[in-house]
Amino acid sequence: MELSGGRFLISFDIDGTLELGDPPGRITTEMVKRARDLGFLVGSCSDRSATSQKAIWERMNMEADFISLKHMLDDVKQRFDMHRYLHIGDRDLDQMFAEQAGFDFLWEHEAYTEPWLDWLNGAGGPIAGQP
């Protein structure tokens, strides 16, 4: 599905980012589902193994569009032709791998207001927290 502002992909770190992570983050399952229902491609990129990430998505009762290891974010970008790519995490490493892969990046504490929803209105400028 193409959204009004384009094709968007959001990658979520798990621990410290999602509410089901350990420690829990502020991104709720409801937020992830809302993004998915609105047409975003959503998945996880974490240091957790693929097996462990799948278990998290099962607990969220959702099917991820992609699951990847954090240091393989660039593979996700190659798999999906999108207008915008966003990774959300809580660690310097999240930011580093996101930037290396050409993703926008949001810290978990910047993301819980769901700024990506503005993209649906064609807001194409830098997202909150970006220079």
Binding site: D22, D47, S49, A50, T51, S52, A55, M72
Partner: peptide, 24 residues
Amino acid sequence: QHRPEELPAEDYINARWVAKPANL
């Protein structure tokens, strides 16, 4: 107790290096 997950070989081999050749 908390994360009853096996560790398949693929999961182990693909993990990020912390200090190569020691991964997560």
